[in-house]
């Protein structure tokens, strides 16, 4: 049931120069685990997240879910895998500007196969329940531009959870939030982990260590330490 990265490497070419973003990194996450990946800017955290989520093909190494190499799948199969098994949360929220809160949450249901058990029939009910859970009931029909940053991130979190994914991949979800909203988002992520969803959190936020079950530190594309809780030395 684990999402595993084994000896994964990724090199970018930026301005004509090769940038090693990920160097033979390995890690795994089980459902119910909350892993915080920490490190300075440009160390390869976001690359690790995108490679883990099937968004960016690594140059070397494998990413498997239930022993299935996700990069052996076609692009559309990988998209299906993301829709069914993963939920993404981004620092910039990435809400669709012309949809309201409920629609932004429900947009994830478009990724589900029509005959999926968690299909369109009850997607709306689940969406409304998530909106309730994140305190957005009275904002259900507001558009993204009418929401505060904290509310937007909670909408993004609700969208990530709509299809009841096994893993949440969160890229700096508290980076644009104030302290209170940041803490609330972290708390919600921790709740997800408690309810059995694996959470892979890429962050600068020192508070993540307080809620994460494991901290992975990255530097210059290398995953240095999987065991030591970050910030506790």
């Amino acid at each position: 049931m684990a999402l595993k990265l084994e000896n994964v490497s990724k090199t970018y070419t930026r301005n004509g120069l090769d940038v090693l973003a990920l160097q033979e990194g390995s890690c795994s996450i089980e459902p119910g685990q909350f892993i915080a990946v920490c490190g300075p800017s440009g160390c390869g955290k976001s690359t690790l997240l995108q490679v883990s989520g099937g968004l960016m093909r690594p140059d070397a190494g494998t990413v498997t879910l239930d022993d299935q190499d996700i990069y052996a799948l076609s692009a559309d199969e990988r998209a299906g895998f993301r829709g069914a098994s993963l939920g993404f949360v981004f620092q910039q929220f990435h809400l669709v500007p012309y949809l309201n809160v409920l629609e932004n949450v429900l947009v994830a249901s478009l990724a589900l196969p029509a005959k999926s058990p968690a299909s369109q029939r009850d997607a709306r009910d689940r969406g409304l329940a998530l909106i309730d859970r994140f305190g957005l009931r009275d904002r259900a029909f507001h558009r993204a531009a009418q929401l505060s940053t904290g509310e937007r991130q909670r909408v993004a979190l609700a969208r990530a959870l709509l299809n009841e994914p096994r893993f949440i991949l969160a890229d700096e979800p508290t980076g644009n939030l104030d302290e209170a909203n940041g803490e609330e988002v972290l708390r919600h992520l921790a709740e997800c982990a408690e309810q059995g969803t694996g959470v892979l959190l890429v962050t600068h936020d020192a508070r993540a260590a307080e809620v994460a079950s494991r901290v992975v530190e990255m530097e210059a594309g290398s995953i240095r330490d999987e065991a030591m809780p970050w910030g506790v030395a």
């Binding site: 989520g53 968004l55 692009a75 559309d76 998209a79 299906g80 895998f81 993301r82 829709g83 069914a84 993963l86 939920g87 993404f88 981004f90 990435h94 809400l95 669709v96 947009v107 994830a108 478009l110 990724a111 589900l112 969208r159 990530a160 299809n163």
Partner: peptide
């Protein structure tokens, strides 16, 4: 980008 990330096929 976000639609593709949440799983919509091409």
């Amino acid at each position: 980008g976000i639609l593709r990330a949440v799983g919509l096929r091409s």
